[in-house]
Simulated scan of single mutants.
Amino acid sequence: MAEPFVNGDVLHLACGVCPSRRLPVGEFDVFERPSKECPYNPADGYRYTADGTPVCVHPDRVGLPVARYKSENAPLTAELHLPPDPSELVPYLHDVLYGAAPVLLDQFIALASAEIRRQFPDLDATDVLRRAMG
């Protein structure tokens, strides 16, 4: 059996009944918020879609983009929108990297490095990333 996405870390921001605490990424969907599409099941404390897919309703807490990972086999992808002002890069990237799901960190770092070089060719992308992670 695959490891759960959140592996017993009691300090993790994921809710105590989040499917990320018992299932690996790809085995549950992530919705933007609670909705009628994923009602709460009082029998076990989880939320499910009509077809029985477990649902997390706090993407910011688990660091995953909203997507139908299980029910529609959506790919897990990192997406960045760098600020136009280079002075905002370090705080923006700090928040993105520290809020990201661990499975996305490599993607975010590679994407950020390429995007910094593309949008801000005068900046040292490695230095910006080091400061963001420091």
Rank of each mutant, 00 (worst) to 15 (best):
Y40E: 08
Y92D: 04
L111H: 02
A100D: 04
H94F: 08
Y40N: 08
L129Q: 00
P34C: 03
A132C: 04
R118M: 07
L76N: 05
S113W: 02
R131I: 01
P4M: 12
P39C: 12
D122K: 15
Y46F: 13
G8I: 11
R47T: 14
I109E: 01
N7V: 05
S35I: 07
A101R: 01
L105K: 08
C15S: 11
P91I: 10
A78N: 09
P102F: 07
A67K: 10
P121L: 03
R21M: 03
E32P: 05
R118D: 07
V128C: 04
M133C: 15
G99F: 05
C38H: 01
P4W: 11
H12E: 08
E27I: 03
R61N: 14
F5E: 08
E37A: 15
R61H: 14
P86V: 10
L80S: 11
E72M: 10
F120L: 04
A43W: 11
P34N: 00
F31L: 01
G63H: 02
R118G: 01
H12S: 09
R131Q: 06
I109Y: 08
L80I: 15
V90H: 00
V62L: 08
H94D: 06
S113G: 02
S35V: 06
R61T: 04
E32T: 10
Y69K: 07
T126M: 04
L123D: 11
C18A: 01
E72H: 14
T53M: 14
V30S: 04
I109W: 03
C38M: 11
G16F: 02
V6Y: 03
L13H: 12
